[in-house]
């Protein structure tokens, strides 16, 4: 049995009468990364900051490493690393001075130079923070969050604004920590980030967890999509198991749970009629589809 690092049960957080988190459950085991997804305003940051102990829960229970972050915040902080969605460092301090300050604000401080090296900031070490680019500052923020290799790591949109290369680098660093046993709770708007890093995913929708599970569980039952364009004057399509609709422009969109069979039927039919299917694409069910469904259910409910 794996030990749970984070346990959230029936969490509720409100700002005045606006309920931002409304009865959410969540667990993260040691050595596991869970991604929390959701549209803008879904309540991800609120949920994270409450689990970190920065906000008070209005109801429900939160345990991090067996402690209550609301009451035992200070005891917990030494074992937890935090990267806020938005946060600040004094612009007049250099990158190294900032990392060195933070090293002395942690008991297991680690090595400021090593952590800058790890996030490819070594060459910016003597530059004032205010002169760093947005992405560099984000990496400095992550460097500080992982100082001393915390047991639990909270990352609120860690790669927003990063170039693709820095994003991969960040994934490597975070992945390495998870391998060493760190429990990570991460939010992101990049679905491929969740796919690449998370062993489990939770989708938050208006303060409630609308979906949860492994990637495979989430996309199970989600149809694959075949998209193509028909030449002008083509005969009627053969019978397919797919649901056929029209997409953008001249696209024909066929959603199917039997992509292999439908594709064969379609291609045989095209050959027989000597047709060329322009821009033919096949895509497996993806997290994006799950996301769209949640958003769609939201519209229907509203």
């Amino acid at each position: 049995m794996t030990e749970l690092a984070i346990e959230v049960h029936d969490l509720r957080v409100a700002y005045g009468d606006h309920v931002a988190v409304d009865g959410a459950d969540l667990t993260v085991a040691r050595g596991e990364l869970v991604a929390l997804l959701g549209t803008n305003g879904a309540g991800k940051t609120t949920m994270l900051e409450t689990i970190e102990g920065h906000r008070r829960a209005d109801a429900g229970s939160v345990r991090v490493l067996g402690l209550d972050p609301g009451r035992e915040r200070l005891r917990l902080l030494g074992r937890v690393g935090v990267m806020l969605q938005e946060s600040g460092f004094s612009g007049e301090l250099t990158t190294w001075e900032t990392a060195d300050l933070w090293r002395s604000l942690r008991r297991r401080g680690g090595d400021a130079d090593a952590v800058l090296e790890r996030l490819e900031l070594a060459h910016r070490r003597d530059v004032p923070v205010k002169q760093l680019s947005g992405g560099e500052r984000r990496r400095l923020d992550l460097a500080i969050a992982i100082l001393g290799e915390p047991e639990v790591l909270f990352l609120d949109e860690p790669t927003t604004g990063l170039d693709p290369q820095s994003r991969r680098r960040t994934w490597e660093v975070v992945g390495g920590l998870v391998e060493n046993g760190t429990a990570v709770l991460l939010t992101t708007h990049y679905l491929e980030e969740a796919e690449a890093l998370a062993s489990r995913i939770a989708i938050l929708d208006r303060g409630r967890i609308a979906r949860r599970g492994t990637m495979a569980e989430l996309v199970a039952g989600i149809a694959a999509t075949i998209v193509f364009q028909l030449p002008a004057g083509a005969p009627a399509l053969p019978p397919l198991t797919a649901q056929v609709t029209t997409g953008h422009g001249d696209d024909v969109v066929a959603e199917t749970t039997e992509p292999q069979q439908d594709l064969r039927t379609l291609l045989d039919w095209a050959d027989a009629h000597r047709l060329r299917l322009a821009r033919l694409r096949v895509r497996d069910g993806s997290l994006e589809d799950v996301f769209e469904r949640v958003a769609h259910e939201q519209e229907v409910a509203a």
Binding site: H54, L74, L77, S87, L105, R106
Partner: peptide, 17 residues
Amino acid sequence: ARRGELVLKRLRTSELP
């Protein structure tokens, strides 16, 4: 100023009381 820059919020995640 430090609060506006979110420096205070960040420092509160450190281990200092």
